[in-house]
């Protein structure tokens, strides 16, 4: 495995920013949304989760700017690594990774090779995360990998329960923390992560696996349409609930 001297991060979402900060802190030379030095880069990180066409365009732009053997790490919350690799001129260098912008609080990042990935690029990817202070676990390729997928499904269930008025948001969060020791309540957790990423995983699983089991709660979609996507927007499930209550009172 070669030494990593230069990293380029592509994308505008929270995970791109967090990885940029982590790279800077590790001392590596890092560029954000700037491919002008692409030919010298050792690792490229691509982070689009919501829009397939933009992700495809990003991969193609990266490939046009970098050395043909440079490792490209791409987020796989919405699509499997193998699909992302299928767009690439050199699919063997694409490696998927799955984590949230809350990565600062967590030590482990999952990575997954595409069916076409060459093991040397998997090793380069492990090396990159080690450099920025994260351990890795290599799993097989599927939308959302393990933790993002399981958490998204828990949040989806909590969203269904809230939408159906089974209990209020604070009760749902408190029940999961005090009844079964979750580190955060699922609704507050979703607000920390940002609802777009949770929706990306659910819709990604729904598209890839084609099962009703994975359909996103309609409430999550509506909150995204309304821009109430969590802490960053300062509005989310809790705002929705209190807003509804407020309007009931005023009627």
């Amino acid at each position: 495995m070669s030494r990593i001297n230069q990293v380029i991060i592509i994308g505008h979402n929270p995970i791109a920013k967090v990885l940029y900060e982590k790279c800077k802190r590790s001392g590596v030379s890092v560029f954000w949304n700037d491919l002008s030095q692409g030919i010298n880069a050792d690792v490229i990180i691509e982070t689009e989760n919501s829009n397939r066409e933009e992700k495809k365009k990003a991969i193609q732009e990266i490939e046009a700017a970098v050395h043909p053997e440079t490792t490209i790490l791409s987020t796989v919350l919405r699509l499997p690594t193998t699909e992302i690799a299928s767009w690439a001129q050199n699919p063997s260098r694409i490696v998927g990774f799955g984590t949230f912008a809350t990565i600062e609080r967590t030590g482990l990042v999952e990575i997954a090779p595409a069916l076409q990935t060459n093991p040397s690029h998997l090793n380069e990817s492990k090396g990159f995360f080690r450099m920025i202070g994260n351990v890795t676990e290599v799993v097989k390729d599927e939308v959302g990998l393990v933790f993002p997928r399981i958490l998204a499904m828990i949040i989806n269930e909590a969203a269904f329960a809230l939408m159906e008025n089974t209990a209020d948001a604070a009760s749902i969060d408190e029940a999961m923390k005090k009844g079964t020791n979750y580190p955060y309540g699922p609704l507050e957790w979703a607000e920390k992560i940002g609802l777009e990423d949770i929706y990306a995983i659910l819709q990604g699983l729904f598209d890839q696996l084609g099962e009703e089991r994975y359909r996103p709660a309609s409430l999550i979609k509506k909150l995204i349409y309304a821009g109430w996507t969590g802490e960053k927007a300062q509005k989310g499930f809790y705002y929705y609930q209190n807003h509804l209550r407020g309007s009931e009172v005023s009627e």
Binding site: E142, V146, R149, I150, M153, I154, N156, E157, A158, A161, E164, N165, T166, A167, D168, S171, I172, E174, A175, M176, K178, G179, T180, P186
Partner: peptide, 27 residues
């Protein structure tokens, strides 16, 4: 800490925790 819940299958905890097990087994 009491939480109020409508009479629905699994109430809150047993329902919302289902994917923690189900999705793990599926994976």
């Amino acid at each position: 800490s009491p939480v109020l819940c409508e009479d629905t299958p699994g109430f809150i905890v047993n329902r919302v925790a289902r994917p923690f097990y189900n999705e793990a087994i599926r994976i």
